[in-house]
Design a protein around this nucleic acid. Sequence first.
DNA 1: ATGAAAGCGCTAACAG
DNA 2: CTGTTAGCGCTTTCAT
Lengths: 343, 343
Amino acid sequence: MRVSLKDVAAHAGVSIKTVSNVVNNYQHVAPAMRERVQRSIDALGYRPNLAARHLRKGRTGMIALALPELGNPYFAELAAAVIDAAAEHDYIVLLDHTGGRREQEILVSQGFRARVIDGLVLSPIELETDDLRDRAENVPLVLLGEREYDLPYDHIAIDNVAAARAAVRHLIRMGRREVAFIGDRRGRSEPAQLRVRGWREELTSAGLSADDGLVAATDGWGHADGAAAMARILETGRRPDAVFAYNDPVAIGAMRVLHERGLRVPEDIAVVGFDDVVEGRFGAVTLTSVSPDKGAIGRLAVQSVLARLGGEAPEPRRIRADFRLIERESTLGRPAGDGPGDA
Amino acid sequence: MRVSLKDVAAHAGVSIKTVSNVVNNYQHVAPAMRERVQRSIDALGYRPNLAARHLRKGRTGMIALALPELGNPYFAELAAAVIDAAAEHDYIVLLDHTGGRREQEILVSQGFRARVIDGLVLSPIELETDDLRDRAENVPLVLLGEREYDLPYDHIAIDNVAAARAAVRHLIRMGRREVAFIGDRRGRSEPAQLRVRGWREELTSAGLSADDGLVAATDGWGHADGAAAMARILETGRRPDAVFAYNDPVAIGAMRVLHERGLRVPEDIAVVGFDDVVEGRFGAVTLTSVSPDKGAIGRLAVQSVLARLGGEAPEPRRIRADFRLIERESTLGRPAGDGPGDA
DNA sequence: ATGAAAGCGCTAACAG
DNA sequence: CTGTTAGCGCTTTCAT
């Protein structure tokens, strides 16, 4: 069987407590004693039983991170950032995925999936404010991402409106006049609303049109969704000279359709994505994208949860992480039809 | 504070044991009693303390899955498969990433990262047989992926040699005569050796050359590595008419360089990848790829770990998961120079 | 069918 | 500086 503190104590001829002191690096242990106990520990191959420690201390040393999907490289990269940040504090991350489905998100927020945790970081998609309001769970919760909740939880995100405006501003500056938005979610309360709002504000303030015909809804936010939406826009006969996509996979899916229809990027249509995933840097046309500071988000999320552990309850905060717009080939140069002879 | 079994017992006016029986769906509880206890449970909002249960039963209900990197979509998709398969058995998955670094892999295999687990699924890259030989850890371990270990652990993988041969055979059948391999790992014992071997065997048995000048080493297996290796091949002046890449990101990175140099895929150079990640289906040129059955791998891995839980020790097995070759645009048609007038 | 009591392995008070 | 003791919340014999 497994060797316990008691076994080590017997082997070393000391009390249990002394062994415990050594294991936990307690201050006042005579060096000779420490030495002797350590020898027994090594001899028996003792390893502390974490379940017992947890039971006793009421802490597990684990936090859960619940993301919509791991297959989206943005979330995968974010997960890596959180895992590393947590490791800095000797914390282990339990990863979960919700599929962006409300039921799953509720389950996670109530602690029904990952149950042995000290804290929870959740990136919701469909979750509603009310779902959180009667949360009968006391482990600290931190929210990630662009949905806004008027609730007493820390919320970490980049300024999505500002980021969207920056993306569209760049497009306008490059001479684009008709900018479509792809990735409004069809038939659900809008998780993409902030990006749509930024898109609309920037166009409007530049005196350009932002009518609904320029907004394409999707079911999800994968490559296939972007492709389908782009195809639909083209079928309406509309020919925007730029597309701002909800995220990079959507943008890349859209570019694929453009390619199939013989439309050139960026000459005919410029494309901007969101998230700056690696994939966007290696296509036939590299993708301009909004790049959130994933490392910072991960670090802030971990800090935020851990800060609430000791029963402390700092004021809930809305924390803004940084972002940058990375310009690449997909928005390079002015539109093809924009020459002097065309004016 | 949290409510415990005792509180519920007091509230319902029964003994602790009876409450426990209800919570655990024990057979012999009078319906009326069950009803009454359940009411108290609901009233108090009782939730079992898992740490205590674990301490008592010696099981945690969690398995760890350690992957090289989450950022690689193949592993992200695989992780999703494992998480879902585990959920079927009421098991939670603790995800970890090793960066493919040997030290991390050793730590994981010894249980130093995720410690409260009933089992471990590890997908190693650099780990050596000896690192596992003196594993002083008794939680069941299952290995994933293409490295071969002569050790008493279950090992789940597709037949990498056969898969590589299928990929190269396809290339040959499409009229290619000089097939390069990209993604042999530079300066390490070879995790890619099975794929290289399959590549070599198939070329040789077709009477084609498989000399070392056709094998390009990389540092890692990301887009950038593929791009760098492709560039290096072209700089030697060699002009293969096909490339077989270690995985899809490497293939896509290589295609980007081909595109930059004005070489057409597949007309000038055909490309085959490995893993069939979503990204490969949406580039300007869609990517032919070997598609491992990720769902099956995930399911088998979970089954395999759980089978070893009850102290049972089935014979260690080498389990082969299925794969298919998905043909797409990157290998479509015969090489450009392969016309009748060229013979 | 239900209750009483022991103990999983550990830490935290408190003594000594 | 080290030893004793009392639980953390649960499951599990063993009685009843």
